[in-house]
Design a protein around this nucleic acid. Structure first.
Lengths: 198, 198, 198, 198
DNA sequence: GATGAATGAGATTTCATTCAT
DNA sequence: AATGAATGAAATCTCATTCAT
């Protein structure tokens, strides 16, 4: 099997992508291992050749994609630009992921971010908070951001707004065509930076 | 009436409260009917006298509590006060519920909001968004709120911020003593109303 | 279901007996839970109502039957008779079990006594050794038994001889009609008591 | 040649020894082909170059080692010595094998002797009984052994005693240092030859 | 109302075996 | 000879739901 259409990765990555698609469509609990195998076009025992359990599949999807995501966010947060500009870059990057990898976002938003074991993954999720919080604190240090608000709570609020917009898209309750995405990016920045009050 | 909790008294309500506790702790899928029965101190066959299925249990928790919640929010949103003041009342009411019924909030946030059948409940969930959105539109009409942002997206953002703070409390990652709750209320209002930019 | 033919015990005991029969016929590994359920005439899942796992089924058969067995042996060993007579009673009781509960003996001999986890059960098995050893030591004290042999090793040898005869019956390699059983009892006693040398 | 062990040298023999070690530790059913391969330090596909199946592995261990063992016993039984002396040589040879190849003994005792297909191997196993029995019958002919006991049953008893002592060593319940082994040999001969009665 | 025994569909997981390289 | 990816039958176990008492 040397199908060149699967440019990136081998069977393992193929399975991870198939799993993300299936979990996205049916939910983690609604998906059977055989669905994943079928989606990947392999026998279902093969899933267990690469992953110890169904749970490890979800865990791996989370770890690897979230790790990449956090790396991107950190590089954006470290660029030599004004804090507010960097904050905009970070939030935009998070929102854009939806368009690039909707299945992945769907899984992260619906299955991982709200699972009962979220506790265990809090640390990894927290890395994204930390990025946002650090940018906000930079802004307070540079005078771009008000000093009378708690940076940690503000980061929490920003992250929640982001996740809810993504959720709206995931659930099909907010329009997600290119224009709508651009508008969402703008509105989020407007509200976060300038508030809603006139 | 500012208490959207499940009404007290009677086996049925006892079971609903027990189910909320169990679902909150283990998640809907991780919870067994026998766990619910055990938590309520009854035989598990009895659950089926009061509810047709496990799903109906969740459905009932959602309907009865969310309906009350929306009623409370609507009454607050309809009071003859400035729009921003009403918005603050609404968000505060949502946050305060956490303190009164943490298990309930946990279930609503984690289990109901992400279930595959969310489509069916979108209307009911949307009622809360609608309340927030209407208040924001009122504010735009009265000039209290900027007209250059989309009220619907703004409502979405506000709701997301709220839910994230609740999640932070649920996960024990944000302090939830009285002072911290008050501060969260203030910060949320500050950010939403005035933005973070100086 | 109030079938009076199953005079002893309820469903649980019915299942244990069925499991012993199935394990005896197919071996522990060759037996499926569904075989046990079918043999007992109940639905599959019911087995798990009474026992946590297939292993617990085997474990329970062992515990309960071995416990009864040891109690019998101990009562025989404690009777106010000469040591050699008591030793004969004990060995005879063990051999007679084959005729009374062949399936049980088959399971104990083939599945339990040689399982890799035998270590864990050594203590319980050891109770039978202890009975035999104590009788031999009593005999040494009273002068009935030679003092120049190690009681522990002698007990081990007696027990091994017993188990091998049972194994011969289990595997159908030794005749087990009433006469043959009586002869085996006699020969065992002869050899153990008097040796084979003339 | 008094070494019934699996012949040294070559991948095939390496695999047989590895299999014996793994079967001894985990039991036949608890052992995976991959465990055997890992123990031998080869890829597990290779096992299938040398053996058709897992079962053939066990079968081969049995045939090759048991065949050698029986040959050794037969040569001892055929030596021109008194019957009781030859019996002592035979039992001692069996016990000594334990010290040389404990894993092998463990497998023969626990896995082969109790497998459901034992019927097929009964003949081969029986060869050892036959050796013992023949020596006893020789003894009866020569007057060394009492004629009033059944030689076949006596052979079973002797074999059972042997196996139980081996089991005690396998399970670590009997001491197996050189002195203890020598004492076991002596005690076994004492009991079998002279009985325990004074 | 209340109990918990009984059912059985359905899912995960294991692992001997095959086979392409 | 050697590797290990790939297969899939088969087994265990779970648990929502039903039902007799």
């Amino acid at each position: 099997m040397t199908d060149p259409s699967l440019a990136v990765g081998g069977r393992r990555e193929e399975l991870l992508r198939a799993a993300a698609r299936v979990f996205a469509e049916k939910g983690y609990h609604g998906a059977r291992i055989s669905d994943v195998a079928e989606e990947a076009g392999v026998a279902y025992g093969l899933v267990y050749h690469y992953f110890r359990s169904k749970d490890e599949l979800l865990e791996t999807i989370f770890h690897e994609s979230w790790g990449r995501m956090v790396a991107v966010l950190e590089s954006l947060a470290d660029s030599p630009k004004p804090a507010l500009e960097r904050l905009r870059l970070v939030t935009t990057a998070l929102l854009r992921t939806w368009q690039q990898e909707p299945d992945l976002v769907r899984v992260l938003v619906r299955e991982v971010a709200r699972s009962p074991q979220l506790q265990d993954r809090a640390g990894e999720f927290g890395a994204a908070f930390t990025v946002i919080r650090r940018v906000i604190e930079d802004g307070q240090a540079s005078g771009e951001v008000r000093s009378d608000i708690d940076a940690r709570l503000a980061a929490w609020i920003v992250y929640g707004a982001l996740e809810e917009i993504l959720t709206g898209w995931v659930l099909g309750q907010l329009p997600d065509d290119d224009d709508a995405v651009a508008q969402a990016e703008r509105t989020l920045a407007d509200v976060v930076f300038g508030g809603i009050a006139r």
